[in-house]
Design a binder for these strands. Sequence first.
DNA 1: TTGGATAAGAAACGCAACGTATCTTAGGGG
DNA 2: CCCCTAAGATACGTTGCGTTTCTTATCCAA
Lengths: 209, 209
Amino acid sequence: MRDSTDTAHPRATDPKTRRRGAELEAAILDAAWAELREHGYGRFTMEGVAGRAGTSKPVLYRRWSSRAELALAAWDSRVPVETDVPDTGSLRGDLLALFERIARRAGAMVNGMIAGVMADAFRHPEMAELLREKLARPTTLTAAVALIVRRAVDRGELPPVRLSHRAARTPLDLVRNEFITCGGSVDHDVLAELVDEVYLPLLRGLDRD
Amino acid sequence: MRDSTDTAHPRATDPKTRRRGAELEAAILDAAWAELREHGYGRFTMEGVAGRAGTSKPVLYRRWSSRAELALAAWDSRVPVETDVPDTGSLRGDLLALFERIARRAGAMVNGMIAGVMADAFRHPEMAELLREKLARPTTLTAAVALIVRRAVDRGELPPVRLSHRAARTPLDLVRNEFITCGGSVDHDVLAELVDEVYLPLLRGLDRD
DNA sequence: TTGGATAAGAAACGCAACGTATCTTAGGGG
DNA sequence: CCCCTAAGATACGTTGCGTTTCTTATCCAA
């Protein structure tokens, strides 16, 4: 089924040199990320990563204590957090850009990665916290929403509203939910629908401040 | 580690009789549900269910083709769908009752069951559809939301609004998301927050019909 | 009543993948 | 130049899925 030669995993590296420290770590994260994108979390294995990175399992376990942790680390290292806040000149434009930003990061959790990591997290409970934190990054995001809303108020697009923490978190919740239930493919239309049919109405219906 | 006697799993039944058909199936679903509640999906094993039900793995596989399918079947059989629509006399009361109803059913997916089943579903792709359908049951739910809103409009609590399919689905999405990210414990306060800070504002902000 | 078809129950297997333990050896730092 | 840290290889024990094989109880029909 697989290759005939055992060392001929997708790709091994130069067998001459022996990498160390940061260089090795980067190579492993590269390999892990590639495996995730190719096979999804369901077939993401330590053996596979080790083989592709041209190293061996103990090397992985010396750095990450479980498959879930490695997957999260790979994702985190390859999918950068975008910290600037979109400023398109309109509330709708800003929200759409923000939703798409969230979707880029959450969407990069390919093929059941969220579900898989969460499922594994019930074995290693400390992982659950880590995942939730990575997915949520709530302070950054709620601050971005608050800023977008404030600018819309200044522009006169919205009356001054009281934006609760929960309401500020909602864009993230909506997008994450969409990714989880749809299994990873969320296109522009759906994001626009979330903005137009859910979040813009929500903002318009908030209590005046 | 376990018991000394091999047959002394949590509970076996009368070794005299040999059950068949519906009776046997009910006993297996009982056992499966008990295992889920005791150990969560992460430690939900076919061996465990078979042992507790006093039967054996092939009997399970003759009925359900995978662990995920059995878990879903057990959940579905033990957690009934409530089809009537709450009618408390106020929009907020109706919504709260509806959110709690959703939470009862979703919340009965104990200990990582959603994540676990979804993760397994990437191996058996037909499962994903099944899970999504069971979680969503969108027609029933959107119809309930539409009725609640219509009654609120009749009472004068809301102006006549255009309720999109997406907006009608949102209560389910919000509650499901909360269960997934919080790992299974969602209390009354959170549901009230979702109603007061998110869904009621959303309804008030919808376009007039 | 009896004899066969059907499905239950038991035991064992192959397989995949986790996570670990042991050992050898490369190569950087004193 | 040598030594100690960590890389790389190999093999192991374990769990649990899903399957196979076989025996035997129970239902049904002639």
